[in-house]
Simulated scan of single mutants.
Amino acid sequence: MLLFAMLATTLSMRVIASDLYARRVPNRWLLGALLLGTLLLAWQAVQQGIASTVPHGAGLLLGLCSLLPFYAMRWMGAGDVKFFAVLGFLLGWQALLPVWIGASLMAGAHAVAVYSWRSLRLHLPPRLMLLQHDAAQHRALAPVLHQVQQARGGREGIPYAAYLGLTSICWAGWTLWGAAP
């Protein structure tokens, strides 16, 4: 369990950074984690028996199938779906519901904040609107923000994979250290 949690945490940290920066979840990271996880799973099967692999296989299938409809409706990207499936493989099917709930709550709060700001911005007094506009132009000129915009390549939206990664790190930590008697 510890090695799977460490692998999931390492992958999650990389995905969080990539999703926040470029709104991308690199396939090679997912594939690499899947291959390392498969090796760990084979070792676990030899040590503990084939039945110990069931939660991981079920997690992969359940993770993929549960978010696939949202991808089909264009509500999320393919990287989010694949990442959730890999997390299910690494952490087991038991982790999927808590990780999904936590990530969805954070993504929902993010969406509410964005839409509230957009709505509030329209009702600002003219002087504050001018200050906000000037601040936005100043931020747009910052080199770092320009690099982020280039890295995103026009991709917008809520960084759902980052929220999945954050909640999976919390889940791994809680199950390894927080749930101990």
Rank of each mutant, 00 (worst) to 15 (best):
L131W: 15
Y115Q: 09
A111R: 03
L35N: 02
A45T: 00
T10Q: 13
V81F: 07
L130E: 15
A113L: 13
P181K: 08
Q137T: 08
S119P: 03
A85V: 02
L130P: 09
A172E: 04
H138P: 08
Q147P: 10
V148T: 08
Q47L: 08
V112A: 10
F84T: 03
A22E: 02
A136M: 10
V46G: 02
A113Q: 14
L141G: 12
L131C: 15
L20I: 11
P159M: 04
A111C: 04
S66K: 04
A103V: 05
H110M: 00
L35H: 00
I50D: 11
L11N: 01
M129D: 09
A136L: 11
T9R: 02
P159L: 02
G37V: 05
A78M: 10
S12T: 10
L122T: 14
W117C: 15
Q147L: 14
A135I: 08
P26I: 01
A85S: 05
A161F: 05
V25K: 01
A180Y: 15
G77N: 09
Q150C: 10
A161V: 02
Q149D: 13
H133Q: 12
H138C: 15
L122M: 14
I101Y: 06
D19C: 04
T10M: 11
A151P: 12
L31W: 14
G79S: 01
M76D: 03
I101S: 07
R139G: 13
Y160R: 07
G88T: 07
G59S: 12
Q47F: 00
A111T: 07
T53G: 08
A107S: 08
W43H: 09
P26T: 01
L34K: 06
S116A: 14
L7Y: 03
L36K: 02
I101T: 07
A8K: 06
A172G: 05
V15Q: 05
A161P: 01
H110L: 00
W43R: 09
L128M: 12
L141N: 09
L34R: 07
Q132M: 14
S104H: 05
L97C: 02
L164V: 07
H123Y: 11
F89W: 03
A78N: 07
G88I: 03
R121K: 12
A151R: 11
V15K: 01
Q132T: 14
M73T: 10
L122N: 11
L41I: 00
V114P: 00
A33Y: 01
Q137I: 07
V112Y: 10
L120C: 04
Y160Q: 07
M129H: 13
H146M: 11
D134R: 13
G88D: 04
G108E: 08
V114A: 05
W100P: 04
R155E: 06
H138A: 14
A5Q: 10
R118N: 09
H138D: 13
A113G: 10
P98N: 02
W75T: 10
V148F: 06
Y115P: 01
P55Q: 11
C170T: 15
P143C: 07
L40Q: 00
L97H: 00
I101V: 15
E156A: 14
G153P: 11
V25E: 04
A179M: 13
A172V: 06
G49D: 03
G57Y: 11
Q94V: 10
C65Q: 03
